[in-house]
């Protein structure tokens, strides 16, 4: 790691005023330390957000919904009773990410802002398009873990497990910098066709200060599935979050988001349309899964993700409809 300066931040204003060229904000530090060790990012100064007072909170209100501080860890999210019960998919996503150790360290804010895990991006010697180079090495390289949607320019998959359910739940992010703004989580992430060099719209000197999740309606249930190659810790090869508003057996409203499938968490609107107003059974869930995957453009080695997603999408929708997983 290159040496760097260190500053403890105790307010948003101070944190922003401490920014200099090449500085980086740090919360849990898991991804940042990894990037620094790999020499992919060598900040001149780290502005430590772990010293921010009152940035670790979970407030749940029956009508106002959930307010989460950016320093809340994935472990806290996965163990929180109200989140497990009413925001099930979020607890499931947080509880299945990485290892128990990493879940104790990694914060929700940092999880949303991770850089991609593409092995060409993470390798110092591959000057890929995302890093300002001319080509995406995944296009004709080892692309078994890469995107099956929106993958022609840069085939990363978005690495945030929590982003998938947060988008499905209609979450918003409060952002502070020189000014304050609130952005729907669905609009926060950036496709390579919009900007190759970033994965979200956070500007330098801006911070996520709060994550807001609207209260689910009385008959809404959610379910999340992460499919990895092995049962113990692993990165997902397919992810899905399903939020269904039910009226008996019939789906009034569906929100389906796919993870590990595209450079941003992908809202499967075709699947949502296929479910709305339908009785949820094996036939309709299969039809929804087909619809979700219609536009897939797999690469040479990741075609397996299509049938895999077809199964996990259907499973998650059925599980959500049955209210499974709400501990």
């Amino acid at each position: 790691m290159r040496p760097f300066e260190w500053a403890d931040a105790t307010s948003v204003e101070q944190a922003v005023s401490l920014t200099v060229k090449g500085s980086a904000f740090k919360a849990g530090g898991v991804d940042l330390v990894d990037l620094m060790k790999e020499r992919l990012f060598e900040p001149s100064r780290i502005i430590n957000l772990n010293t921010m007072p009152d940035w670790n909170f979970i407030k749940d209100d029956a009508s106002a919904g959930l307010k989460i501080g950016p320093l809340v860890t994935l472990a806290q999210l996965s163990e929180h009773d109200a989140i497990r019960k009413r925001y099930t998919a979020l607890a499931q996503a947080a509880g299945h990410a990485a290892t128990p150790q990493i879940r104790n360290m990694a914060t929700l804010g940092g999880n949303l802002l991770q850089r991609p895990r593409c092995w060409y991006f993470r390798h110092e010697e591959f000057h890929c398009r995302k890093k300002g180079g001319e080509r995406c090495f995944a296009q004709d390289g080892e692309n078994q873990y890469h995107a099956i949607f929106n993958n022609s320019l840069c085939a990363i998959v978005h690495p945030s497990a929590t982003a998938t359910p947060l988008i499905a739940m209609g979450a918003t992010l409060d952002i502070s910098g020189k000014a304050k703004r609130t952005v729907p989580a669905e609009e926060f992430f950036t496709l390579p066709s919009v900007d190759l060099h970033r994965e979200n719209q956070l500007e330098p000197g801006e911070l996520i200060t709060q994550i807001n999740v609207p209260a689910p309606s009385a008959n809404a249930r959610s379910f999340y599935i992460k499919q990895g190659e092995k049962e113990s810790f692993d990165w997902p090869v397919a992810e899905i979050a399903a939020v269904l508003e039910m009226d008996g057996d019939t789906c009034k409203k569906a929100s389906i988001v796919l993870g590990a499938a595209a450079p941003v968490p992908r809202r499967a609107k075709e699947a949502e349309a296929a479910l709305t107003g339908q009785k949820i059974d094996e036939k309709t869930t299969r039809a929804a899964a087909e619809a979700a995957l219609k536009e897939a453009t797999p690469l040479a080695n990741n075609g397996y993700k299509v049938p895999l997603l077809r199964v996990v999408i259907a499973r998650a929708i059925l599980a959500a409809a049955r209210g499974e997983g709400a501990a």
Binding site: K26, V33, D34, T99, P100
Partner: peptide
């Protein structure tokens, strides 16, 4: 363990 929770000390900056 930090504050009773398991963490990776290799990814924890000592400052933290």
């Amino acid at each position: 363990w930090i504050d009773g929770k398991t963490v990776c000390s290799c990814m924890t900056l000592a400052m933290d």
